Computed example of a mutant assay.
Amino acid sequence: MKILIVDDNNTNLVVLKALSGKLDGNEVYTFNLPAEALAWCAGHDPDLVLLDYMMPDIDGFQFLARFRALPGKEEIPVIMITADNELEVRYRALELGANDFLTKPVDKTEFLARMRNMLALRQSRKLLADRADWLAQEVRKATADIVERERGAIFLLSKVAEYRDPETGAHILRMAHYCKLIGQRLGLADDAVAMLFDAAPMHDIGKVGIPDHILLKPGRLDAGEMAVMRQHARIGWEILTSAPFENALFSAAAEIALSHHEKVDGSGYPQGLAGEAIPLMGRIVAVADVFDALTSARPYKVAWELDAARDFLSAQAGSHFDARCVEAFLAAWDEVLEIRARYEDDSFEA
C-alpha cells in the first residue's frame, strides 16, 4: 500500500514517515511542497493520504479539493492533521472529502490505530472494486456466449432458407454488410447497427413456407402465384415470433421479415405501410436486398449493370425506397464495391 504524507515542516515529515514505517508492507512518499504532491498524485494512486492543514500557498483545504478533483481519487482515504480543534475546520474538511483527523502533537498509539483503520478501509474498497471488475468481465463473457449462440441459430435458420431459395449464401452476406453500411451512414448507434447486421440475414426465412413450384419457378409468376409468394413476409414473421421466450434479436428479425417488402408510398406488402410507419430496419433492408438481387446473376436472369441498379435506386427513392437510406447507400459506394468483390457468387449461366 502507498502512503502519501504532505506537510510543509520537514521535521514533521521525518516523524510521520518513521511512525508510518511501523506498519509493515507499505511504501511511504513524503512532500513538503503541496504543488509537487499534487503533481505526483496526477500520475500515481496513493492508498492513504496524511495531510497537514496549516500550510502556506496551498493549505489543507485547497489541497484536498484539488486532490478529490483528480480522476480516480474520489475513494482514497485522507487523514487531515491539524493543531486546530475547532469544529468549523473539521466540518469544512469533511465537506471537502476528509475521512478522519489527527491532532498535533500526534499520539503514536492513536496514529497507528487510525492508519490501520484507513488502510483496511482502502484494502476493502480495492477488493470490492476488483470483485466488481471480475463480475463485469464474467457478464461480458456470458453475454458474448449468448450472442454467439444467437448468431449460430441465425446461421442455421438462414441455411434452411438457403436450401429452399435459389438465392445464394453470398447474397445473404452481401445484403447484411450493405445494411451495416447504411445503418452506419445514418448514424445509428453501434448496438443498433450490430442488431441490424445480425438480424438482416433472416429477412426471407418465410420462403421455407412457399411451395417449390412457385419458389423455384424459372419464369415470371402469374398473379395467383405472386399472391402466394408474397405470403413469405408474414410467414417469416410468424416463424420468428413463435419462440416461447423474449429475444430482442429474433424480434428485430421478425420486424424485418414482415416489413422489408413495404414501400414508402404505401404500395408494398403485406400491410401497405407508408413512410416512417415502415420500421427503419425494414426500410434499410429493402434497399440492400433489392440492389443485391438486381446486380446478381441467377439461373433464370442476368445481372443488371451496376450503373443501371444505381439509377433504379435513385429513381425509386421516395416512392419504393426511403430516400435517406438510398442516399446513405450510394454515399458508401466504394465500400459497396469492396463488399461485392469480397463475397462473390459462384458463376451462373444466364
Rank of each mutant, 00 (worst) to 15 (best):
I339N: 12
R342K: 11
P279S: 05
M195Y: 08
M115C: 13
I210N: 04
L19H: 09
R140S: 15
A142K: 09
A253V: 00
T168M: 10
E27Y: 07
F348M: 13
Y91H: 14
L70H: 11
L221W: 09
I256S: 11
L294S: 08
T30W: 00
L64I: 03
R116G: 02
S251G: 06
I79C: 02
K17M: 08
A200K: 02
E95M: 08
A199Y: 09
I58T: 06
R114Q: 01
R342D: 08
I278R: 03
K141M: 06
R185L: 00
S314W: 00
Q231N: 11
I205N: 13
G282H: 04
G169S: 14
A252K: 15
A257C: 03
Y269E: 06
D289M: 04
H232Y: 05
A253G: 00
F329E: 01
L13K: 01
A37W: 02
S124H: 09
V208A: 06
R66Y: 00
E27C: 02
A309E: 03
D190R: 10
E276R: 06
N85E: 10
V14T: 12
V6F: 13
I146V: 11
E27M: 08
L19Q: 12
M118I: 02
Q316C: 15
L156F: 14
V28D: 07
D289S: 01
I256D: 12
E75M: 14
D107M: 04
A331P: 07
M229G: 05
N9K: 07
S242M: 01
L19Y: 10
G275S: 05
A200E: 05
S319A: 14
R220E: 07
I182V: 07
I239G: 10
F63I: 03
L112W: 01
D204V: 10
T168G: 13
Q271D: 12
D130V: 02
D100K: 00
K159R: 15
D191E: 15
D7Y: 02
H320N: 09
L119T: 03
D191Q: 15
N117W: 04
A132H: 00
V336I: 09
W40I: 01
V15I: 13
L96K: 00
I339Y: 10
Y178R: 01
A223D: 10
L16I: 03
K301H: 08
R116W: 02
G209A: 15
D345P: 03
L51G: 06
A274P: 13
V6Q: 12
F321A: 11
A113R: 08
L127K: 14
L181Q: 05
